[in-house]
Design a protein around this nucleic acid. Structure first.
Length: 228
DNA sequence: ACCCAGGGTCATA
DNA sequence: TATGACCATGGG
């Protein structure tokens, strides 16, 4: 009864798109690069609800721009983004990122280079690791890259697929080879995984409504849940 | 009173 | 290379 030996990740993607009717999520087609980048930095090891609160506070304080972030001190930024946690580190990250953008004459200038070059540039920036860099490349700069994250690892683990290691570069290479080279497809694929994990997959791993029920291997969750 | 969250940096071995 | 401490708030 298993699906034909096609790509299980692509199969899952199709189902998630239909099941959740993925047209809207916290980053839509018209979300600006600033929101995407700040969100990507603030969400590090933090729940999205806290990130939204922090972004709202930045907006209300008139600090929602590269220029404003350049002027504010790290202490001031830290106070504004406090709900997202780790204010010392994250305020520094926002500030360093604002300086990066400004030094290239704005987002256009920063993004106007090959994806590989942009990624290297981002990885050399304090506070930007592989995942954050890939999110910026895919969603803000709109290059058809891939993103690996905890949700992807969880989903693929349940699907019984993946590169076989837990190193980011291995996952990235695997995703690159697995997903069609298409900007829109890759953006929607990752968005679908995020929506699925947030709305259903985490809280109810054995939910009857799970659109992936018949292709998931819930082995570890079942054993954990049964206390075995 | 725990545990975890869409990571990343820094210090050790 | 690989593992661990640390960051820090808010929700389950």
């Amino acid at each position: 009864m298993k699906p034909p030996p096609t790509n299980r990740l692509l199969d899952a993607h199709e189902r998630l798109i239909v099941h959740y009717n993925i047209n809207r999520w916290h980053w839509t087609e018209d979300t600006g690069p600033l929101d995407i980048c700040l969100g990507a930095l603030l969400v590090q090891h933090t729940s999205w609800a806290n990130v939204e609160t922090a972004l709202t506070r930045l907006r209300e304080a008139g600090a929602h721009s590269i220029e404003a972030l350049l002027k504010l001190s790290e202490t001031e930024i830290g106070a504004l983004i406090l709900p997202a946690g780790m204010p010392v580190g994250k305020s520094r990250r926002l500030k360093v990122f604002a300086e990066l953008v400004a030094s290239h004459g704005g987002f256009e200038g920063l993004f106007d280079r090959p994806a590989v070059e942009l990624r290297t540039l981002l990885l050399g920036t304090y506070g930007i690791g592989p995942e954050t860099a890939d999110v910026i490349v895919l969603y803000a700069a709109k290059h058809p890259g891939v993103v690996h994250d905890a949700y992807t690892a969880r989903l693929c683990g349940r699907l019984g697929i993946g590169p076989g290691t837990n190193r980011y570069e291995d996952w990235r290479a695997w995703l690159e080879a697995t997903l069609p080279y298409d900007l829109d497809y890759r953006r929607r694929n990752h968005a679908a995984i995020v929506v699925h994990c947030k709305e259903l997959c985490r809280t109810k791993p054995l939910c009857n409504a799970c659109p992936l029920r018949d292709i998931c291997e819930y082995v570890s969750e079942v054993l954990d849940g049964a206390g075995k």
